[in-house]
Simulated assay, not measured.
Amino acid sequence: MADVVGRPGRDALEDRLAGLREELEVDVCVVNGENVADGVGITPKLAERLLAAGADAITLGNHTWRRQEIRPYLESSDRIVRPANFAATTPGKGLTVVPAADGTPVAVVNVMGSLSLQPATSMWELVDDLVDEARSATPVVVVDVHAEATSEKVALARWLDGRVTAVIGTHTHVQTSDARVQPGGTAAITDAGMTGPHDSVIGVKAEQATQRMRTGMTVRFEVADGGIRIEGVLVGFDGATGRASAITPVRVPWP
């Protein structure tokens, strides 16, 4: 599932995710939760709610540290990851392995792009080692690349083609129309979209976002509440080889 934004996104997911998993025959579900706490960050309580709603693993992004209480939770949880290219001294990890419904182990990797986001380390310096570590546990590897630049996301998908099952872009909150299975068997999309209010500017009340852009002045952002829908992608894969066979964008209005 794409970036879950604020209470509207959380409410939609809690109401529909279990049913969607059954309808779409989903074996494993990865959710980006870095915007779930009023649009910025995540708390342990909200992470547990996403997991209880049907997420098997949660990925994060540039707003990871906006809620200080998440730090000890990241140290202890095996189901939530933050970008692996944060500083090595920060809590948490960028790789985890969770079981699919049939028991197949699925590795989930989280990295962040450099343009506008400026992580401590470039994802290019560590992604190969991360993928090798993931593949030592399972051939099924899903990479969440949380990045501003489409070029970084497309380049990473090309670089990892044939070595991972899927490279899913997050962060920009607008679902792109380039879902494809690449020649090496890696599914990819530049951005999976947003689970939240789409009558907005990427989840924020439009008038507030527009005021900041027009004036350059500080404006307190609030999560919008109209046009809510669940977005993400459905990836078909072979559990034995890790090769993807299909990728389909998901867009479900709510309620």
Rank of each mutant, 00 (worst) to 15 (best):
A87R: 14
A87P: 08
A87H: 15
A87C: 11
A87G: 15
A88R: 12
A88V: 04
T89R: 14
T90H: 12
T90Q: 13
T90W: 14
T90K: 12
P91S: 15
P91Q: 12
G92E: 08
K93C: 07
G94F: 02
G94E: 00
L95K: 09
V97K: 09
V97R: 11
V97S: 10
V97W: 05
V98E: 06
V98P: 14
V98K: 04
V98T: 09
P99A: 04
A100N: 12
A100P: 11
A100R: 14
A101C: 10
A101P: 11
A101R: 15
D102M: 07
D102P: 02
G103R: 09
G103W: 10
G103F: 09
T104N: 09
T104A: 11
P105Y: 03
P105D: 13
P105T: 07
V106L: 03
V106I: 15
A107W: 03
A107Q: 10
A107Y: 08
V108A: 09
V109M: 04
N110W: 07
N110A: 02
N110T: 01
N110Y: 00
V111W: 03
V111G: 02
V111S: 04
V111E: 06
V111Y: 05
M112E: 13
M112A: 07
M112F: 07
M112R: 03
M112K: 05
G113E: 14
G113F: 13
G113S: 08
S114Y: 09
S114D: 13
S114I: 05
S114M: 10
S114V: 04
L115P: 08
L117C: 01
L117S: 11
L117A: 04
P119R: 08
A120H: 05
A120E: 00
A120Y: 01
A120Q: 06
A120F: 03
T121Q: 04
T121W: 05
T121G: 00
S122Q: 08
S122H: 14
M123G: 01
W124E: 13
W124S: 12
W124H: 07
W124R: 06
L126Y: 07
L126P: 06
L126I: 09
V127A: 03
V127L: 06
V127G: 11
V127E: 05
D128M: 05
D128S: 10
D128C: 02
D129Q: 13
L130D: 01
L130R: 02
V131S: 09
V131W: 05
D132K: 09
D132Q: 09
E133I: 08
E133C: 08
E133L: 01
R135N: 08
S136G: 15
A137R: 12
T138L: 06
T138K: 02
T138N: 07
P139L: 00
V140S: 01
V141P: 07
V141Y: 05
V142P: 00
V142L: 14
V142T: 04
V143I: 11
V143E: 01
V143G: 10
D144W: 13
D144E: 07
V145Y: 04
V145F: 01
H146Q: 05
H146N: 04
